[in-house]
């Protein structure tokens, strides 16, 4: 028994020490630094609420947070609507065709989102595919400038990059639905809408919720997509945080903004965690 304890401790120790030292400790330090003060001479230990006051007093900052949350919610909803039919379609296939579709679906999941965001530049830019195609057939004679650098394109970019995080859990939860349930409903005369609303939706709700949390989490912390595609009007909260470190040198304010963002995400997980275990969110509702 005692040896069993020792073995358990030895198995847990390396991973736990790593996570404590390089995740929890730095996170704790972030919270501490959010009460420090930064000036042109650097960031010094202090205990001040001025970073948080600066955030809440300036409507530009709070509006940016609200805009980011709005983009997060809308992107999540769009992803759910796009994902459900395709997840359903694939779950109804069988054999090699299903296997091929699943691989096709998840292959882009494994390729860099920086690359998958970049692809829109040569498609929507001045010399992009859309402009060149429209000009060559004579619909326009000047390239359209509004195709890029606006909030709408940020939605397109985010949905393109993150939808698969919604499709996976929905697909996995649809896989668990017994097809005989649907057959029985059809035999009893249920209409497609009834089948969706009264059988599929309740049974796959955990999958939708898992995917929704994941997409929302990724979207509200987006930096790459708004930076590359958004232009000045498409900027999000992540860009504001990054600017404190990459261009400005305001580490303490950046720390406070980071705490706010992490706090929003944590709050969401605490609220939704009552319905879905968080481990289920990341294993796509498998367990």
């Amino acid at each position: 028994m005692k040896r069993g304890r020792l073995a358990l401790a030895l198995l847990l120790a390396p991973g736990l020490l790593w996570l404590m030292a390089f995740v929890m400790l730095p996170l704790g330090f972030l919270v501490v630094m959010s009460f420090w003060s930064s000036s042109i001479f650097g960031t010094v230990p202090d205990f001040t609420l001025s970073n948080y006051r600066r955030f809440f007093d300036n409507p530009l900052y709070t509006e940016l947070l609200l805009k980011t949350l709005r983009i997060g919610i809308i992107t999540t909803l769009i992803s759910a609507v796009i994902s459900y039919p395709i997840a359903y379609f694939i779950s109804r296939q069988s054999g090699w065709r299903k296997f091929a579709l699943v691989v096709l679906l998840f292959l882009p999941f494994w390729t860099s989102y920086v690359v998958r965001t970049f692809v829109w530049l040569p498609i929507l830019g001045r010399n992009g595919a859309i402009n060149q195609a429209l000009m060559s057939i004579g619909i326009i004679d000047q390239p359209l400038e509004w195709l890029l650098y606006n909030e709408g394109i940020v939605y397109l970019g985010l949905v393109y990059v993150y939808t698969l995080f919604m499709t996976l859990p929905i697909y996995l939860s649809l896989e668990k639905v017994d097809p005989r349930l649907i057959e029985a409903a059809v035999d009893l005369g249920a209409r497609p809408l009834d089948i969706f609303l009264r059988i599929l939706l309740p049974l796959t709700w955990p999958g939708i919720l898992s995917g929704g949390i994941m997409v929302f989490l990724l979207t509200v912390s987006a930096y790459v997509t708004p930076q590359l595609l958004g232009g000045p009007s498409g900027i999000m909260f992540g860009n504001l945080i990054a600017a404190q470190y990459l261009t400005g040198n305001n580490w303490a304010f950046g720390a406070a903004l980071s705490v706010v963002l992490a706090g929003v995400v944590l709050l969401l997980l605490l609220v939704t965690g009552r319905w879905v275990g968080i481990q289920q969110v990341f294993s796509g509702g498998r367990s």
């Binding site: 390089f22 995740v23 730095p26 996170l27 330090f29 972030l30 989490l217 990724l218 509200v220 912390s221 930096y223 992540g238 945080i241 990054a242 470190y245 950046g254 720390a255 980071s258 963002l261 992490a262 995400v265 944590l266 997980l269 968080i278």
Partner: peptide
């Protein structure tokens, strides 16, 4: 769970 951007900044 920690937003990616925060995961970089803490380090």
């Amino acid at each position: 769970v920690v937003p990616g951007i925060v995961g970089g900044i803490i380090l």
